[in-house]
Design a binder for these strands. Sequence first.
DNA 1: TACTTGACCGTAT
DNA 2: CATACGGCCAAGT
Length: 125
Amino acid sequence: MLPCAAMDAHGDDPVQRIRAAVAAIPRGRVASYGEIAARAGLPGRARLVGRVLREAPAALRLPWHRVLRAGGVTAFPAGSREAREQARRLAAEGVPMQRGRVALDRHGWERDLDAALWAPPTRRR
DNA sequence: TACTTGACCGTAT
DNA sequence: CATACGGCCAAGT
């Protein structure tokens, strides 16, 4: 038998883990390719994330529009069909993209961590 | 088999 | 802000 059979039980396939990481991006939030790679346990492999998204079946309904390049810049050429579609989808969930860029300090997935560290100890509202 | 491409990234100039 | 460079590595030529 193959030794990988055991690990498969947990989903060892990089493609599956990347898809799962993308699917986990909260609505109204965005993440970078590098961040997704790291969350999928594949640090330094941002390009693989791009490849996986490009080849992902549309039927999977992955929130690909929530994935941006480092710095919050769209991975698509300005004005391209994909870039416009991405901006449209993000806008639909309250994430503005201007000049092909999203403000990560306001909409980045990791923003919550910083917010938590800087937030007042007591309740907020 | 060797070389090129890419939905990328961080650092350095 | 813009180039450049090295790292990454599966697919395509």
